[in-house]
Amino acid sequence: MHGFANPARFLRIAKWLTAPLLVSGLLLSFGAVAWGLTQVPPDRLMGDTVRILFVHVPAAWLGMGGWSAIAIASLMELVWRHPLAAIAARAAAVPGAAFTALCLITGSIWGRPTWGTWWVWDGRLTSMLVLLFLYFGYIALSSSLAREGQSSRIAAIFGLVGAINIPIINRSVVWWNSLHQPPSITMGESSIDPVFLWPLLIATLGFSLLFGGVVLTRMRAILADMQAEARLRRKALQAEDIVR
């Protein structure tokens, strides 16, 4: 991992990886969703609304995955002081928040025809909403620290503490009574019929590749901004020295 600590080397690899990740992600995710809409039969109980599965589950996975990435990057920043860790955490925050919001919106749309309500204050939905607010807090904190030129260690601690919510989301349907169904996919096992499972797995892979591409894109943007800022500051200081 320390091999990528050099921003120049990282940028070379990121430039090479960004387009393939975005293009393959778009093709796989949109293709799997089209497959789910046109080729998958309606479910015995949920009818046609089962097709929302192919966008809702990847969004939930990436909402939680985004915060897990922030927590891992925060740990790397605090323990190993990896120079790109804070940038990676900042870059994962906006896409993570976007997919958490999409998970909540698609879940709410799915809830209306299946549960008869748009929203219930149960463990799963509430902990997911808490995750969205944690993202907002993290984005505000890390951007203000970067703008002021201060250390990102406070944001890293926030990222680590916020990770407590991830197992709570995961276990919420087991610990508390909920309208939300219990987990259908666990370690090595699935109660989902293969006719739904395959497009779901491909959609999840596709959206995950897209997420990776977006994180690399945002890391490149943050690095380019930092390099431009540093160069302009250096030139301003040199100009000041000449005037004196």
Binding site: L37, I52, F54, I105, T106, I109
Partner: peptide, 8 residues
């Protein structure tokens, strides 16, 4: 509902 969720 399916179109709304997928569209969003």
């Amino acid at each position: 509902f399916v179109y709304a969720a997928v569209g969003v």
